[in-house]
């Protein structure tokens, strides 16, 4: 089998791939931010057993955990355009949806991995020693203050290993956005394949890019983990 990677030298393809890579990274980062927001908010609601909201959050988690992110993405994509949230372009008279494929992809990444993050952060919170929590309560911290200053900082640190997996999963899931025509690196790759028919080589290249991105994320998470470690607390890794 002879592999031909000469197409990589084409400046036009390089530009495409770089732009695609940029889109993938931007999408992942925005998805990560949304994921953390949803994860922390959801964990707060379930942990403090907020009366009605806790049930809703549980439903939300179970629904997003047990359905494919791809179907969720298609669903969001069509539902948001179905609800008529469109602008009319003054120049061409075309109707453009406010929620583009990119926004939908970020939303779906944030929602799916956010649902997983809620569970992860919640189990991190449960792993905080009860003496620490009781100590804070006896010092006069309110339930919310205990959560904000004691449980969340320790719980988040304890949930770092599982969260690393979730971050990698988010990056890997982000390529599904190519199926709603977001010009990420996966989409760019399929376009290049249509032009030069070097299917295998292009796929190997994309494969390497994703493995590199995931490994980079793992390294970054380990670095963050080391930065925020409380000296003398938790497992020494």
């Amino acid at each position: 089998m002879n592999l031909d990677f000469s197409w990589l030298a084409d400046p036009y393809y390089q530009y495409w791939l770089l732009r695609g890579l940029g889109t993938t990274i931007l999408m992942s980062v925005l998805g990560l931010v949304l994921m953390m927001v949803i994860g922390i908010a959801g964990a707060l609601i379930i942990h403090l057993r907020v009366p009605v909201l806790a049930t809703w959050t549980t439903l939300f988690v179970e629904m997003f955990r047990n359905t494919p992110p791809l179907v969720q993405l298609f669903f969001l994509y069509f539902m948001l355009s179905e609800m008529g949230l469109t602008l009319t372009d003054p120049a061409t008279g075309q109707r453009i949806p406010i929620f583009s494929g990119f926004t939908c992809a970020v939303l779906s990444l944030g929602l799916y991995n956010g649902a997983l993050a809620i569970e992860i952060i919640r189990s991190g919170l449960l792993a905080v020693p009860s003496q620490t929590v009781e100590g804070a309560r006896s010092l006069g911290y309110s339930r919310v203050q205990t959560f904000r200053y004691i449980e969340l900082p320790i719980g988040l640190r304890l949930s770092m290993p599982a969260m690393t997996n979730n971050v990698v999963s988010l990056i890997k899931t982000s390529n599904q956005a190519a199926l709603v025509a977001v010009a990420d690196i996966m989409y760019t790759a399929t376009q290049i394949m249509l032009e030069n028919f070097r299917n295998l080589e292009v796929m190997i290249f994309v494969w390497v890019v994703y493995v590199a991105l995931s490994s980079l994320a793992v390294v970054a998470m380990r670095y963050i983990d080391r930065l925020i470690r409380i000296p003398g607390y938790g497992a020494v890794a």
């Binding site: 890997k172 899931t173 394949m193 295998l200 994703y210």
Partner: peptide, 18 residues
């Protein structure tokens, strides 16, 4: 490690052509 770190969609695409 290689298989675990690669996105499923990419593997599927690769199989499609491989």
């Amino acid at each position: 490690n290689l298989l675990r770190n690669s996105p499923w969609l990419v593997v599927l695409f690769a199989m499609l052509y491989l």
